[in-house]
Design a protein around this nucleic acid. Structure first.
Length: 271
DNA sequence: AACGCGCCCTGTCCGC
DNA sequence: TGCGGACAGGGCGCGT
C-alpha cells in the first residue's frame, strides 16, 4: 500500500509525537512480523529505550533509539497508528508499544507482508547501502536517471519500481509519473532520450511532492498515524481508471500487466 | 548479471 | 447463497 508519500506522511506525524518518549512495554501479537530475532528478544531489546529521530529511508519508517534503530516496513497493508486514533480491528494488531506517557503506538497489518526489524548502526548502514537514491534528494538528477536507465533493457515502469535504482516509487506513482512524463510504460529503459529522462525526472518529483501535500493515496487500507485517509486518490490521473477518458485527450485509459502488476496509461498521450 | 516469476497472507469483489 | 478465481499499494528468493 504505502509508497514514499504515504510513508513520509506517517513519518512527519510521528516525528512530532515520539522523540523523547521512552518505550515502556512491547507486546508482540504476531511474531512472524519480527525480522531477524525472536519476538521475546525484540521486545526485551526495545523496552526501556528512548526514542530519538523518526525519519524515512525509501518506503521504511526509521525510528532512532539510543544505540540502534527500529525499522518498520509496512508492506501492502501495514499501519503504524497512535492508539486511540480511529478504530483498529484488533484481530490484525501485530505489535503494541506502550510509551512512558501511557500512549500506545500500534502496528496493524491485515496481510502481514510488513516487517519490523531492529538494526545496529553498522547493520543498518550495510542494509541501507543496497537501496537506490532518494527521488526527492540531490543525487537524483535527470542526467543520473538518463545514465542509469541506459544500463537496463527492462520496461521503464518496471525499472522505476526497482528499489535498487530509485526508491519510494511503487505501483501507483510509477503509472502516474509516466503519464505526466507522456512516456509509454512499455518502453525499454535504455531507449529514453535525454529530454525524455528529464521529463520523467521532473514528473517523478512532481507527483511525489503533490501526493505528500495531500497526505498520500488511500485506495483501501492506507491510514496515517492518526488513522486518517490520504487525500490524493481522487487526484490520480490514470491509476485504477481503466476505461475512463484520459484527462488530457479523452482516449480511454488502458490497463496492462507488467511484471505481474497492473499498469495504467493513456495509449494516445504516452509515447 | 539481469531479469521474470512465484510466493508470502488476508480480504474483497465479480462471474457463474 | 456459495464457490472459485482474480486482484490488491511490497519485497524477497529462486531459476534461467
Amino acid at each position: 500500500m504505502p509508497e514514499l508519500p504515504e510513508v513520509e506522511t506517517i513519518v512527519r506525524d510521528l516525528a512530532r509525537l515520539l522523540p523523547g518518549r521512552r518505550i515502556r512495554r512491547v507486546e508482540v501479537l504476531r511474531p512472524d512480523l519480527i525480522e531477524g530475532e525472536s519476538a521475546a528478544e525484540f521486545g526485551a531489546g526495545l523496552e526501556g529505550q528512548m526514542v530519538g529521530e523518526v525519519t524515512r529511508r525509501a518506503k521504511n519508517i526509521v525510528i532512532a533509539l539510543e544505540d540502534e534503530r527500529l525499522v518498520v516496513n509496512l508492506g501492502m497493508t501495514g499501519r503504524l497508528l497512535m492508539a486511540g486514533a480511529g478504530e483498529v480491528d484488533e484481530k490484525h494488531t501485530g505489535v503494541r508499544f506502550t510509551l512512558d506517557d501511557g500512549r500506545q503506538l500500534v502496528y496493524h497489518d491485515v496481510r502481514r507482508f510488513g516487517r519490523l526489524t531492529r538494526y545496529s548502526d553498522e547493520a543498518w548502514r550495510a542494509w541501507e547501502a543496497r537501496l537506490g537514491v532518494e527521488p526527492l534528494g540531490g543525487e537524483f538528477t535527470s542526467q543520473w536517471l538518463h545514465e542509469q536507465a541506459a544500463r537496463s533493457r527492462v520496461a521503464i515502469k518496471t525499472w522505476l519500481m526497482d528499489q535498487r535504482h530509485v526508491v519510494g516509487v511503487g505501483n501507483i506513482y510509477a503509472s502516474e509519473a509516466l503519464f505526466r512524463a507522456k512516456l509509454d510504460p512499455r518502453r525499454a529503459a535504455n531507449t529514453l532520450t535525454a529530454p525524455e529522462a528529464r521529463r520523467l525526472h521532473d514528473a517523478v518529483r512532481a507527483v511525489l511532492r503533490d501526493a505528500i501535500e495531500f497526505r498520500g493515496t488511500t485506495l483501501l487500507d492506507y491510514r496515517d498515524a492518526s488513522g486518517e485517509r490520504g487525500g490524493f486518490a481522487e487526484r490520480l490521473k490514470v491509476y485504477g481508471r481503466q476505461g475512463e477518458p484520459c484527462p488530457v485527450c479523452g482516449t480511454p485509459i488502458e490497463r496492462i500487466v507488467q511484471g505481474g502488476r497492473s499498469t495504467f496509461f493513456c495509449p494516445r498521450c504516452q509515447k
